[in-house]
């Protein structure tokens, strides 16, 4: 159980929570499973990508989309939260990558923010997409950003994949966001000569590899997203919708 130091709205429907972790470290790309209250409804923990970890304080960003996250949003600072983690693998770009593109959709910005905080990122450009300007999170935290929104309320109107195309050659991509975006990024990487890593999200039962509720088909067979991922190399996921 960790004391909640911060739990406040970040943008419309989005929240940032920071809490004292009972684990020593987390790496960008890893996630935690948060328990929502101690009653049985909702029952399961909620997977949340770690958006920051400093001095024993873990930060997550979440969107209030359902019963569980709505309850989470009501928890006050000073109360406690039960987090299981850190879980899963992490972003691990080669040290000699010359050009790193951080591609995030909506809440998918969370692990990219964490990576950027850890690795500086003078050679990293963040491509952030969302439905509206309210869905563009943390843009001020990146050194260089390219923004797109579907309604044109921020940045260029359209999908983030449009401006990405011209930057892809020879780049190393770290991406996190909706499945449709990740598949599009995966396809574009192949087409334009980029490689990289994609962080997938999925509904999870346990988060540590035993319920088999979050499997993903890959070139190397069926994998559990929670322990074999959530980060997978580009070109390895066999996308299914």
């Amino acid at each position: 159980m960790g004391k909640i130091l911060e739990n406040r709205p970040l943008a419309r429907g989005y929240y940032r929570m920071s809490f004292e972790a009972d684990f020593a470290e987390a790496r960008p790309g890893q996630f935690v499973m948060l328990r929502v209250g101690l009653t049985h409804d909702p029952l399961l923990r909620r997977p949340m990508s770690v958006a920051g970890f400093e001095n024993g304080v873990c930060t997550v960003i979440y969107r209030s989309v359902g019963k569980g996250t709505a309850i989470l949003a009501e928890i006050r600072e000073g109360e406690t939260v039960n987090a299981l983690g850190p879980l899963g693998n992490w972003f691990d770009p080669p040290s000699d990558a010359k050009k790193i593109l951080l591609v995030g959709g909506g809440i998918g910005v969370a692990p990219l923010r964490f990576w950027h905080r850890r690795n500086g990122g003078k050679n990293a450009v963040a491509y952030i997409g969302g439905a509206t300007k309210e869905d563009i999170l943390c843009k001020e935290e990146f050194a260089q950003t390219v923004i797109t929104t579907i309604d044109g309320s921020a940045g260029t109107r359209g999908l983030i994949t449009a401006p990405l195309v011209s930057a892809l050659e020879g780049a190393y991509v770290l991406a996190c966001g909706p499945k449709g975006m990740l598949k599009a990024v995966d396809d574009l990487c192949k087409e334009y000569g980029a490689t990289g890593e994609l962080s997938l999200e999925e509904r999870m039962g346990c988060g540590f590899g035993v319920c088999l509720g979050c499997v993903v088909d890959t070139a190397a067979g069926k994998k559990r997203l929670c322990v074999d991922g959530p980060v997978f190399k580009t070109g390895s996921v066999q996308w299914q919708f």
Binding site: D41, E202, G213, V215
Partner: peptide, 11 residues
């Protein structure tokens, strides 16, 4: 997939 879903007090 999907293989699991949450329901009231269960899954």
């Amino acid at each position: 997939m999907p293989r699991i879903c949450e329901t009231p007090c269960g899954m």
